[in-house]
Design a protein around this nucleic acid. Sequence first.
DNA 1: AAGGGGTCCAACCGCTGGTCT
DNA 2: TAGACCAGCGGTTGGACCCCT
Length: 564
Amino acid sequence: MAANNSTGGVATSEGGGSNTGGAESGLGGATLKKGPWTAAEDAILVEYVRKHGEGNWNAVQRNSGLARCGKSCRLRWANHLRPNLKKGAFTPEEERLILELHAKYGNKWARMAAQLPGRTDNEIKNYWNTRVKRRQRQGLPLYPHDIQPSSQTQSPNQTQTQTQLQLQHQYQSQSTPTTPTTPTAPTTPTTPTTPTFHFQSHAHHHPSFSLSPTPPPPPPSHHQHQHQQHQHHSFSLSPSKPQHFTTNTSTSLPLFDPTNNSNTNTTPSSFTFHRPPPILGAPIRFKRYRETTGFSLPLSPAPHTTTTTTTTTTNNNNMITSPTSITPLGQLSSTQLPDISCFKFPLTYSHSAPQLISTQLELDQMMSAYSMKQELPSSQLSPQHHHPPPPHPPPPATTMSEITIDTKVSAAAANRGCGNGLLEDLLDEAHALAISNQGLRTQSFLGVKEEKRVFDGFKHWEGSSTIDCSPGVKPKEEPGVQINTMQEDLSKLLNVIPSTMQIPSDWYSDSGEVSNGQSSGVTDENIGIDMQHIASLFPLGATTDHSHSRTTGSCSWDNLPGIC
DNA sequence: AAGGGGTCCAACCGCTGGTCT
DNA sequence: TAGACCAGCGGTTGGACCCCT
């Protein structure tokens, strides 16, 4: 997660003027730290939560000595340290679900997050805001044609976006598709409109989606994968498959219903928005590839590992797994090597049966890790940054041919496979291209043949997208792989650097540089205190053997003393 | 190579609602 | 009942990174 380096360099700027980053604020005499969290702070917080459970966040600061306000602790825990967090780019299914949820709930991020297991409201919010900005700039509607926002929960932001949508529909209904009108930035009326929308949901797309009057959803863990396997990705270019709409959850006076569009050909299986073609003038850029592991600590799950889960129990919604095998370093590809999430720390985590780091070796490893990276914000600890994959070959700069469309759609599909979420944008473009190419002949939508071609192309790329997007991008969750278990999360926290990794000498430098070359620019002036806190948290063993922790490839986590 | 724009995301702030005293 | 406290939510900010020009 490249952006994890954000706010680096600010953390130590005391009184730098910015409210964020490094400033320290007094609260009742205590000095509260702001800015990026360090791994040491994370460890303290995790340990505290492990001992005392969630809640009572203000007590964290009081009892743990963590110089963070309760709110900050809660946020850190909720967004980064909490078990079972799913990091990385949103899957197409998740993106689709976000659309649907936003259509229903508006900017109720927490509510949306509740239906997206492993996702935080902050993530969703960021995603949505980015999407809003992007689509505003591109003059695209926020929602696919088959998702109509509900008026039930309109926040100001949503009001704005819905108003845009409405205006766009109005515009679309008044203009012909071939009108080469330059898309101006959508106006955002300040007076909220009070339209009544209705929502259409593809029940078969998201059986877990509570909107539709369908049977109760399957467990979330099943949900996503099943979607990947059984569900056509829902997007606008899908007339070749039947679209099953549930009944409208809000039936009163839909302000703009695709089926009521002035374009009488609009059906649920056809385009309902007709975007003027600025599209080519401002081609959509592929999102840059980013490391999608994203966990603030360097240990997101490694799908490539051969780790198997032998025991999986649920305790307070925390999955507890015990890895039984670990891919040796030598078997890892070069791209896997930096992913130290391959290393499983053989401890279990349970609120009911908390464990302590009980040996000096464990503590030493922990401290070694921190000593290497203690001055980094924990979010920067991932050693697997920045392996930019070769960019997608740009779409051939040819005329607006079907090939172009297919290329774009295919690329979109490939990108979609990476969870970049531009598929709809690209499909919109493809659609607009088709419109501009075919003019009124096809009225406002691709002919069935073309659409099927596009869709087939999409499906083709969908199937191969995992290969296409693989360089530098960690694949999504592997089916059946339970990620983000508590155990893994704890291992993430407690094993910033695996003992089996040769530690480059420069990791110890005070510059905060890590192997990925990124400069944290962040120093934790309180790191000494933090480490004392950590040390105070964990009882020390009697002996110390520092040679254990940094030998090369000779020490597997499996060989470590068990915890508990 | 440098600058600008876009994107991402962590973390802040202010506000709100619930609970407790 | 009022005030204090707390947890949570949504909006916003700001820095790093990436791509394009």
